[in-house]
């Protein structure tokens, strides 16, 4: 497997704030690589460094063997960077926007139609509409068409699904998976932990540190404790009552259940059930469950604190 992106000891500071703390990472050619972390974790700084738009304080980055500082001109022709904020021209039409992007890279929409067809054909019926008048989902598709029109070898997508509803998000991931057929390396960031499962590999990032890099399945399998989903009739008090339990390792809300770990290796449902009954809970349901990426993220954050 060829390495497409090689990040070595990258550090970035803004005054006293350290946005990236000596990060190293390798991303393979053709993979969908997810950078998963909340706002302020350093995702956007990292993307801007990869896109040759921001200089790191120290460390080196090369993409496809080209250095982001020395070879930025050659690199920019091979990259497609989609920033987090919609950055197309709002008062140009759909067609004018994509023609502009094509001409900036010395090509035409017609010449590159094969690669953008899957996405662009969905918004083509609205080609005379101004970009500013498009719905959120359509803007996102236009932005993706514009970064694809020069057939980049690496796509850098910074939070393409933030603020997008769950259905449009699923659709977007479907599009990314189909793009793999073109052997494009896709680096994509998201604050939605569940989207990690859609990636080939992910890096979990928090406070400028990479906490873990692996396939999503491996990360989930390495959750260090047995995890139980607990549910009772009283969802407002269950959390505090669980935290007061003598042997609680962790207790966090996950949808309609609380995910619970016990500090002991020997754990019996009956003991916890008796405790909860004593606290006045009814309809108690305790069952073992598998960890999600979000469970793992929380566990890694707790280890650090």
């Amino acid at each position: 497997m060829q390495v497409a992106v090689k990040i070595e000891n990258i550090r970035k500071t803004y005054g006293d704030i350290v946005a990236l703390k000596d990060i190293s990472l390798r991303i393979n050619e053709g993979e969908i690589f997810g950078i998963i972390g909340p706002d302020g974790s350093g995702k956007t700084s990292l993307f801007r460094i990869l896109a040759t738009l921001l200089l790191a304080d120290s460390g080196t980055v090369s993409l496809l063997g080209l250095d982001v500082v020395k070879d930025y001109k050659a690199l920019r022709k091979m990259l497609g960077y989609m920033p987090g904020r919609f950055s197309l021209y709002q008062d140009l039409t759909v067609e004018e926007n994509i023609n502009l992007f094509a001409s900036l890279f010395g090509t035409t929409v017609a010449a590159q139609y094969d690669i953008i067809k899957d996405i662009y054909s969905q918004i083509e019926p609205f080609k005379d509409r101004r970009a500013g008048k498009l719905s959120g989902g359509m803007k996102q598709k236009l932005a993706l068409s514009c970064v694809l029109v020069h057939k980049p070898r690496i796509l850098l997508l910074d939070e393409p699904t933030t603020g997008v509803d769950p259905i449009s998000r699923k659709e977007f991931w479907g599009i990314l998976k189909r793009l793999k057929a073109w052997n494009i390396t896709i680096v994509v960031s998201t604050p939605y932990m569940d989207e990690a499962m859609q990636c080939d590999r992910v890096a979990l990032i928090q406070d400028g540190n990479i906490m873990s890099v692996d396939t999503p399945d491996n990360i989930v399998n390495e959750f260090p404790a047995r995890l139980y989903a607990v549910k009772t009739s009283n969802k407002h008090t269950i959390l505090t009552d669980l935290r007061d339990f003598e042997y609680t390792g962790s207790a966090f809300a996950f949808g309609d259940h609380i995910h619970f770990t016990d500090v002991r290796t020997e754990f019996t449902n009956d003991e916890l059930k008796a405790y909860l009954e004593e606290k006045g809970h009814t309809d108690i349901d305790i069952s073992e469950t598998t960890a999600t990426i979000e469970d793992c993220f929380i566990e890694l954050m707790r280890k650090k604190i």
């Binding site: 909340p38 706002d39 933030t162 603020g163 604050p191 959390l239 809300a253 979000e294 929380i298 707790r302």
Partner: peptide
């Protein structure tokens, strides 16, 4: 209106509390 967008999973849960 989307009060928890983008915050880390622990802070998000504290906010719900």
């Amino acid at each position: 209106d989307e009060p928890t967008g983008g915050v880390d999973p622990i802070t998000r849960r504290q906010f719900w509390e």
